[in-house]
């Protein structure tokens, strides 16, 4: 078997090749298990998120239907029914802010929107299925100059000061980044 140095060299190369193949196979098996496991977790997370969004859409369907048809008073009452069971839920707070803004109650709307977005920023996410980004952005653009002017005219106007603070908060969340 080991007639000369050349034979020994051949055997050494052969063994090294075997070790390399075994190692690569082991790593490959381990990697695919990791990928499978990771994919499973990703899938589970996505399924939970999808289920959560579907549930919220279903839960608030009477509210959003009334909101879309312009029946704001009815939307607010329907929201009150949901909030009886889930008083501080973030999507409900955002919806309340949107309805109140449509009804012209801007101070109360801003308070509710800021509270809702603080709990869950996804409701002003560009790609969120339950996002009210455009409504909130329009509110910030339209109202900020008005509140800034009010505060400039009367520094003791505490209501305007509070609303301006909420507007700046929403503005910063719309811009993205850390809170």
């Amino acid at each position: 078997m080991f007639v000369d140095r050349y034979d020994r060299l051949l055997w050494a190369v052969f063994i090294l090749l075997l070790i390399a193949i075994a190692t690569t196979t082991a790593y490959s098996l381990q990697g695919s298990a990791y990928v499978t496991q990771h994919n499973d977790r990703n899938l589970a997370r996505k399924m939970i998120e999808r289920a959560r969004l579907d549930y919220l859409a279903d839960l608030y369907a009477p509210v959003t239907a009334a909101l879309e048809s312009g029946d704001y008073s009815h939307a607010l009452l329907a929201l009150g029914e949901v909030q009886r069971s889930f008083p501080d839920e973030a999507y409900g707070q955002v919806l309340k802010g949107v309805i109140l803004s449509k009804m012209g109650a801007i101070d109360a709307a801003l308070e509710s929107l800021a509270a809702g977005i603080k709990r869950d920023g996804n409701y002003i996410d560009r790609n969120g299925s339950l996002s009210y980004r455009e409504t909130v952005a329009a509110l910030v653009v339209n109202q900020l100059p008005l509140y800034a002017a009010r505060v400039a005219n009367d520094a003791g106007d505490t209501i305007a000061l509070t609303s301006k603070r909420h507007l700046h908060y929403l503005q910063s969340r719309l811009a993205g980044g850390c809170e």
């Binding site: 009477p62 008073s73 009815h74 009452l77 329907a78 029914e81 009886r84 012209g104 109650a105």
Partner: peptide, 27 residues
């Protein structure tokens, strides 16, 4: 008053679908 409708709905005395709101005043 809208507030009373709001409170009665929250307390479960009425539901939002029991009534039609024909008109609402300014705040």
């Amino acid at each position: 008053p809208l507030l009373d409708l709001e409170v009665m709905t929250r307390e479960g005395k009425i539901t939002a679908d029991d009534f039609v709101i024909l008109g609402q005043s300014p705040l």
